[in-house]
């Protein structure tokens, strides 16, 4: 059963009818409806194209959060061989909101970080809906240290609403853990790559996305605060999330325009969940060619290039 977003209702209706007709034809109650089915299917496909041709930032936010959207674990399963998950921060605990491990990517050994939201109630609770606590970021730091020592490029799959806002997270130093993780990214002399696959939520994302190359999926978002959060703080009205999503410029296309990201992975019409394999393969190609470019550089240049890139952000925007 496919789940539809509210703005996809016209498509949902048409595809629903197609299903009904198909069921009827199988039960043998109707004859010669193949033409009708084909017409309806074409109509549904066209409706989807029309809707996705002009998605608003708020609609993109919903696509980015779509429950069926491929998550970090899917990308790892699809792109990483010999996947060997590692656990724990060695000082407090294991945080499943961030997956960390070793594996191979297109034949090369790599270190991988993935913010995982989970796909059903049980796994969402296990992964805390992708919202990491300090131990998640400290595990990420540990993995990056490991990657540095063993010369492994680091690939981050970014998908979080943000770092977890809770008492326990605060008392164990959420802010410090995020800051140190960002610092760990900047210290690497091996290349690191980030791919925002859904939501790039503020500091919780930047902690693992301060990378040589940052890519985004076509309908993913990356923002300093969630549209809902901005609406409730700036407009004092969380119903203004649509306005906030538009005003804050959070889409992949906006970020490309501001020179924040390095590329966009195209999604099929209807979003990544309609054809996950194609999207993940395309993402793999983009990451692979980035690695090819970066692995030519000397270790010192890898670090310097990353640092220069972040220092340059915003400097050539028109006053």
């Amino acid at each position: 059963m496919r789940s539809y977003l509210e703005f996809e209702k016209p498509v949902a209706d048409l595809e629903g009818k197609v299903q009904e007709l198909k069921a009827l034809s199988q039960s043998g109650e109707a004859v010669a409806i193949d033409d009708d089915v084909a017409k309806l299917e074409a109509k549904a496909a066209q409706a989807l194209v029309d809707i996705y041709a002009k998605l608003t930032p708020w609609q993109k936010t919903q696509v980015a959060r779509h429950p069926d959207r491929p998550h970090a674990a899917n990308y790892i399963a699809s792109l990483i061989g010999d996947w060997t998950p590692l656990a724990g921060d060695r000082s407090f605990g294991e945080d499943a909101a961030i997956l960390a491990g070793l594996g191979t990517f297109r034949g090369r050994p790599v270190a991988v970080l993935g913010q995982e939201k989970g796909h059903d109630t049980q796994s969402r609770i296990k992964h805390n809906f992708g919202m990491a606590r300090p131990e998640g970021y400290r595990k990420a730091i540990r993995l990056m240290d490991l990657a540095e020592r063993f010369r492994l490029p680091v690939i981050s799959f970014v998908d979080t609403a943000g770092a977890y806002p809770g008492v326990d997270a605060e008392e164990r130093g959420q802010a410090e853990a995020i800051a140190r993780s960002t610092e760990a990214c900047l210290k690497l002399t091996v290349p690191n790559l980030a791919l925002v696959i859904g939501e790039g939520g503020s500091g919780g994302a930047i902690a693992v996305a301060t990378c040589n190359r940052v890519y985004m999926l076509e309908h993913s978002i990356y923002s300093v605060i969630s549209p809902e959060g901005a609406a409730s703080i700036l407009w004092k009205d969380s119903a203004k999330a649509q306005d906030a999503a538009t005003g804050m410029k959070i889409t992949a296309q906006d970020l490309m325009r501001f020179g924040i990201i390095d590329g966009i992975v195209k999604e099929p019409t209807g979003g990544a969940h309609r054809d996950p394999d194609t999207v993940m393969a395309a993402a793999g190609d983009m990451l692979d060619s980035a690695l090819e470019e970066l692995l030519i550089l000397s270790p010192a240049d890898v670090k310097k290039a990353r640092r220069d890139k972040f220092l340059a952000i915003g400097r050539d925007l028109k006053p």
Binding site: A179, T182, G203, I206, T210, S223, V224, K249, D254
Partner: peptide
Amino acid sequence: GILSLMQMP
């Protein structure tokens, strides 16, 4: 927006 977030790195 994102330009303020980029001040963290």
